[in-house]
């Protein structure tokens, strides 16, 4: 797919995060589409797409959000680079259970960062948020597999 088209789609994902996802919240939990997309793309070895989403989506969230500019972009790019390192050195063989666990973990870390920046102690809701994000990551992974017709994705079921 054309790089410009991908950037436009990823920017739209950022806008969807701010306008559509609040309507799909459960008990105040709104999973981050950009975070889920970055993690899943990075895990299935679409590193360039993961970085592009982290930058485009992150900049949109920084542009609209109340935190200091650059927070989301830096965090998402950092996550993509960490996953790349994990894939190369520690976990070369990925499966859907590991996608679930990794998304859960990164959602917790992201949530902790935000809580600390808003001067709040993280609460037990973090785990519900992590679970919700992890479930959506599996859904997204299966959709991605369909899109790529089960080819060229470096993950087993």
């Amino acid at each position: 797919m054309n790089k410009i088209l991908k950037i436009i789609i990823f920017i739209l994902i950022g806008i969807l995060q701010l306008t559509l996802m609040p309507l799909l919240q459960i008990k105040g939990m709104i999973p981050d589409l950009v975070l889920i997309g970055c993690v899943v793309f990075a895990i299935v070895d679409l590193q360039d797409d993961a970085l592009l989403l982290a930058i485009a989506g992150g900049l949109i969230l920084d542009w609209a959000g109340p935190l200091f500019f650059g927070f989301h972009t830096i965090v998402f790019v950092g996550f993509v680079l960490i996953i790349r390192f994990l894939l190369q050195k520690i976990l070369p063989d990925m499966n859907s259970i590991l996608i679930f666990i990794i998304t859960f973990f990164f959602a917790l870390v992201y949530s902790c960062f935000q809580n600390l920046l808003y001067n709040r102690w993280p609460s037990l809701n973090l785990f519900s948020y992590g679970l919700y994000s992890a479930v959506l990551s599996i859904v997204f992974f299966f959709l991605l597999q369909r899109l790529h017709n089960n080819r060229n994705l470096a993950v087993k079921l």
């Binding site: 996802m21 609040p22 709104i30 981050d32 609209a64 959000g65 109340p66 935190l67």
Partner: peptide, 12 residues
């Protein structure tokens, strides 16, 4: 309401 700028703040 247009949207929500942060999932952590209870704000619109």
């Amino acid at each position: 309401i247009i949207g929500q700028s942060s999932g952590y703040l209870r704000s619109v």
